[in-house]
């Protein structure tokens, strides 16, 4: 079997090819996340409040979408025993983990771009610091994708995994939700926040992502082992 980066490329390309064919994220998860944004816009029905909470709603919708996307990513591998076949083939599981994280991150980034656009239209916010927003999206997405794949791997072979994943994943993803929300509010300059206040949160998000990427790469083999 090949080295970790080559394995990661192969697995990422495979996961993205599966999504290109099935279009589950595009046709089901994306509309679901969009609906969350629309429903909150109706529920809040107040421009001032809506613009104040827009950053939080973007990340809440992203987190809900993450749960569905991770579930799907591992269900596809488990359906016909492909994840077990990958283990049996002695593939470098660090590479498998990083490949799955990369594919998940690409899908989440597309999704988040749509959610930010929805926030701009529905909640009447404007992006005051585009660079900060891009940094938040990248750092938070890396962290979410990493924890998503760690816990997706943990529950892949477990009974009741559909309900177990949110239970395990949500508490661990909470720091990302908080940090990304604060930093996005700064990028939107909503609620009196300034762009300068957002960068420390980006640092925290980057540290979170780095820790979970390393921890996931080192532990993934053991997590998916029988």
């Amino acid at each position: 079997m090949t080295e970790p980066l080559a394995t990661a490329r192969t697995i990422a390309a495979k996961d993205l090819a599966v999504e290109r064919r099935s279009r589950v994220v595009a046709n089901q998860v994306l509309p679901f996340a969009g609906l969350v944004m629309v429903m909150f816009a109706f529920a809040l029905d107040d421009d001032a409040i809506a613009s104040r909470v827009a950053g939080g709603l973007v990340w809440l919708a992203a987190l809900l979408a993450l749960l569905v996307t991770v579930q799907r990513s591992f269900a596809v591998d488990a359906a016909d025993g492909a994840l077990e076949a990958i283990r049996a083939a002695g593939a470098d599981m660090r590479g498998v983990f990083l490949g799955k994280v990369a594919a998940l991150a690409v899908q989440l980034l597309v999704l988040e771009a749509v959610l930010v656009a929805a926030a701009i239209v529905l909640y009447r916010v404007s992006v005051r610091d585009p660079l900060l927003l891009v940094a938040v999206l990248v750092a938070a997405t890396a962290g979410l994708a990493a924890v998503g794949c760690i816990y997706g791997g943990v529950v892949a072979g477990a009974g009741g995994r559909e309900t177990l994943l949110p239970l395990l994943l949500m508490p661990v993803a909470a720091p990302v939700l908080i940090g990304a929300t604060r930093a996005t509010e700064s990028a939107f300059a909503s609620g009196g926040a300034t762009p300068a206040e957002g960068w420390p949160w980006v640092g925290l998000l980057a540290a979170f992502a780095a820790v979970f990427l390393v921890a996931g790469a080192m532990s993934f083999a053991a997590l998916v082992e029988e």
């Binding site: 079997m1 599966v18 596809v76 591998d77 016909d80 025993g81 492909a82 076949a85 049996a88 083939a89």
Partner: peptide, 17 residues
């Protein structure tokens, strides 16, 4: 694992590919 190939009851394929 690197030197063996196992064909189990399940085929280990991705249906969408």
């Amino acid at each position: 694992r690197r030197r063996t190939a196992l064909l189990a009851h399940r085929d280990g394929l991705w249906a969408d590919l």
